[in-house]
């Protein structure tokens, strides 16, 4: 394989990662890292750094459409981002001391369970959310126009404190394992906080970019960001995310949910594989 072919292949793989990532609110890392390291033999440090870049690209590529269509709940995103950013700081510096092995197994199991819960969601959709004074006083509740339904959807936010706790863990994990925290944040927003799946995707999309920016800066200063690898990843993911963000508003909720469950299962498999190998 020549460098030129590598560049084009990586850009194509990244394009699909960007479409999927922007739709479900997770970074393209779960596709980009194995494609680069297992399939193409890229040094794992460069692969992880490129995947962090892909998370930012997913977020920024999709963001302008989501802000314009007002699907992103920016207030909620900012609040949860405090916890996530603090977690990411913790994770980045714990990484030197903690072996990833058991963490991979632990999160592999957690993600498997989460994907099962996300599939069960339909049955419990009618449950009444508990009142949340914190969400009331911070005015976290919101509404957006759902193009697929053709109507304005109004929603309330519950269990903000649980959301903060999970966001902290999600941030730590993203710093430790080099994955975006989206796989943890989307389910907690959707299942526990009662937020529509599209808002979860778009809001998670906003947050993963901000969190990844801090990690990316750290990787960058360390010299792990190899331009030859990172450039085609960033270009492919940016274009893919732009495509994906145009699709999100138009696709029905259950399609987004199924795509997310597929991403969760893929993610869980990868983590268990890394931990058990």
């Amino acid at each position: 394989m020549t460098p030129l072919f590598f560049t084009l292949l990586v850009a194509a793989i990244s394009l699909s990662a960007g479409v999927l990532g922007s739709l479900v609110g997770v970074g393209g890392g779960i596709i980009v890292v194995p494609a680069l390291s297992l399939l193409l033999g890229v040094d794992i440090r460069h692969a992880i750094a490129a995947s962090i870049i892909s998370v930012i690209a997913t977020s920024s590529g999709a963001a302008s459409a989501y802000v314009r269509e007002r699907i992103t709940n920016i207030r909620l995103a900012m609040l949860l981002e405090i916890a996530t950013a603090a977690g990411a700081l913790t994770g980045a510096f714990l990484a030197a001391y903690i072996s990833g092995r058991w963490l991979f197994i632990l999160f592999g199991v957690i993600l498997s369970y989460t994907s099962w819960s996300m599939l069960q969601k339909k049955k419990t959709a009618a449950t009444v959310l508990p009142p949340d004074p914190m969400a009331d006083s911070l005015r976290l509740h919101g509404s957006y126009f759902d193009r697929a339904l053709g109507q304005q959807v109004t929603y309330r936010v519950a269990r903000t404190k649980l959301g903060l706790a999970v966001s902290y863990v999600a941030g730590t994990v993203s710093g430790l394992l080099g994955i975006g925290g989206g796989v943890l944040k989307v389910p907690v927003m959707n299942l526990a906080m009662g937020i529509p799946i599209k808002v979860c995707s778009a809001t998670s999309n906003f947050m993963i970019g901000v969190t990844a920016a801090t990690s990316a800066a750290v990787y960058f200063m360390r010299g792990d960001v190899q331009p030859f690898v990172a450039a085609p990843v960033a270009v492919g993911v940016l274009l893919g995310a732009k495509l994906g963000s145009r699709l999100l508003g138009r696709l029905p909720n259950h399609v987004i949910r199924i795509a997310f469950v597929a991403v969760l299962l893929l993610s869980a498999t990868q983590m268990l594989w890394k931990g058990l190998r």
Binding site: I53, I56, M78, V210, F220, A230, A231, L238
Partner: peptide, 13 residues
Amino acid sequence: GLLLLIATPVIRV
């Protein structure tokens, strides 16, 4: 280009 990309979320905040 990569630095500009990394900076965008920060500028957004």
